[in-house]
Structure formats: C-alpha cells, structure tokens
C-alpha cells in the first residue's frame, strides 16, 4: 500500500479524488437532505420541526404505498431483465452483421429515446387498445402492459451503451475462436459476454433507473389496479407529496446500499481466503 502512486494509479491521484469527492457530494447532499427530512416531525418537506419516526410507522401501515412500491419493483426488475437482453442482442446484431438499412435500424432504435414521453405514452395506450389487450388480468399479469412499455423505451439505452463498448472489440479474438472450432454459442458465452459484462451492468442499471422513475408512459398504459410509485407521487402533487414517500425512499436507498456493501465485503473476504 505504501508504494508510490504510479502514473496510471488514477484512483490515488489527489486531484482526481477531490473531483470525484465533489461529484459525490453533489449527488448525495440532496439525498441526505431527503433522508434527514424523513425523520422530520412535520407534514411538509421544507421546514424542520423536530425528530420523529412517525413517517416510518406510516409507511408500514400504508398498504396503498406498499402496493405501489411492490408494483414498481416488480416492473423495474422484469423490465430491466428483458430490456438488457433485447438491447444487448440488438447491439450484437448491429455490430456483428452488415445488412442494408443498418443505419436506419440504428436510427429507429434511437426513436424511443427522442420521442417525448407523452407522445410515446398515448401511442402505446392506443396500441394496447387496438390489439384488445385483456384488461382484467390478475396481479402481477395486470402489470404486463407497463412492463412491455418500459422495455420498449429502455432497451435502446442499453443498445447504445453496449454498442459503445463493442466498437473496441478485437475482432481477431472472434476469428481465433472460430478457427479453434468454437460455435457461435460458445463464442458468445465464453468470449463476448464476459467482455461485455461492464456494459451489461451499466445498461441494466440505466434501464432499472429509467423504469423506476417513469410516470407519463406508465400512466397511459396502466390497467385498473396497477398504481406504481411515480404515479402515486405525481398524483399527490395536487395536495402535497406525503412525507412517508421520503421514508420509503430512504429505506430503499439504505437497504440497497447495505446489501451491496455487504456483498462486496463478503466477496472480498472469500477471494482472500481462496488465495491463501
């Protein structure tokens, strides 16, 4: 650890560390404010009135909020999985094959990114009407239209990220693999996907974030009884965003962060043990 920082040890350069610290501060200060206010003994989010855990108790009892939260999670996880798979598949096809109209496909892929949410939402609402999508499915099947809509607008983001990583792929690896008799499946599994892993993680995180945050499109395609967290929050805006929303997000963030940090440490110690 005491070795002097090498020229490429960017993580150990003070100038960079400071920049990153400043960026993280920028990202986290509002979040910490939100977390602090989730303990505020007031119905508003603006002024501090004293410490209280009442909003956490209220989250616990608020079945409608828990239902919306569960719906959002189910949708986000399913949509992320599908969007990552489809987006990656499309990116690989666009990279691997040359075909007429390829530029067109790429441009069309970008459409869901550009078309304003409200246009996309109304278009999808009409689409589900046109194909006579059944409207009385049981949970969680009633979430399907939302999941489909989320996949549709999220996968192009995945494609873009994966495409960007593929452009630097050393094609000689591919040739070598095929020369050695590997089939397409083996090549994908053992060479391409491991190489794409960081892009898959990044794309999945992006899709998850987009899905979790979407209001407009969700609103227009949702069936009766499939309220999501953003729909609930935007609908509260007419009066005020309820403080238990802050509490719910604090739980989500703290829980995710703890699980991730714990997982990283466990993996770390396991690796150390394996080495020794």
């Amino acid at each position: 650890m005491s070795t002097p920082a090498g020229p490429l040890d960017y993580t150990r350069r003070w100038s960079l560390r400071l920049t990153v610290a400043a960026a993280l501060l920028f990202l986290y200060v509002p979040l910490l404010v939100m977390m602090a206010f989730s303990f505020n003994d007031s119905t508003r989010i603006i002024r501090w009135e004293g410490f209280s855990t009442r909003w956490y108790e209220s989250v616990w009892q608020n079945t409608a909020l828990i239902e919306a939260f569960t719906n959002s999670m189910v949708i986000a996880f399913s949509a992320t999985l599908l969007a990552t798979a489809i987006g990656t598949g499309l990116a690989i096809c666009l990279w691997r094959f040359r075909f007429p109209g390829k530029t067109l496909v790429e441009a069309v892929n970008g459409l869901p990114i550009v078309i304003p949410e409200i246009s996309l939402g109304v278009a999808m609402m009409i689409f589900f009407k046109q194909i006579n999508w059944p409207s009385d499915l049981a949970w969680p099947l009633n979430l399907l239209p939302i999941i489909i809509a989320h996949v549709a607008f999220a996968f192009p983001f995945v494609t873009l990220v994966v495409r960007a990583r593929l452009t630097g792929f050393d094609r000689s690896l591919e040739e070598a693999a095929f020369d050695l008799g590997a089939g397409m499946g083996l090549f994908l599994r053992d060479i391409l996907l491991p190489y794409l892993k960081p892009a898959l993680i990044a794309g999945a995180l992006l899709a998850f974030t987009l899905s979790l945050d979407d209001f407009v499109i969700t609103y227009f395609v949702s069936e009766v009884g499939s309220t999501t967290l953003p729909v609930k929050i935007y609908s509260q805006l007419r009066f005020k965003v309820q403080p238990d929303i802050n509490a719910a997000f604090t739980v989500l963030i703290v829980l995710t962060a703890s699980i991730a940090i714990a997982a990283a440490f466990i993996l770390n110690t396991m690796q150390k043990k394996n080495k020794s």
Binding site: L27, P30, F37, D213, F215, I233, V241, I245, L252, I253
Partner: peptide, 16 residues
Amino acid sequence: LVILPFWTNLLVRTYA
C-alpha cells in the same frame, strides 16, 4: 453508489 441517488423519484430528488 453513483447511480443510487437516482432511484429516488425525479420529483422527490428535484424537491430535495
């Protein structure tokens, strides 16, 4: 850690 703040809702985040 970089993306975690973005799992809060856009409105909540903007208000914060």
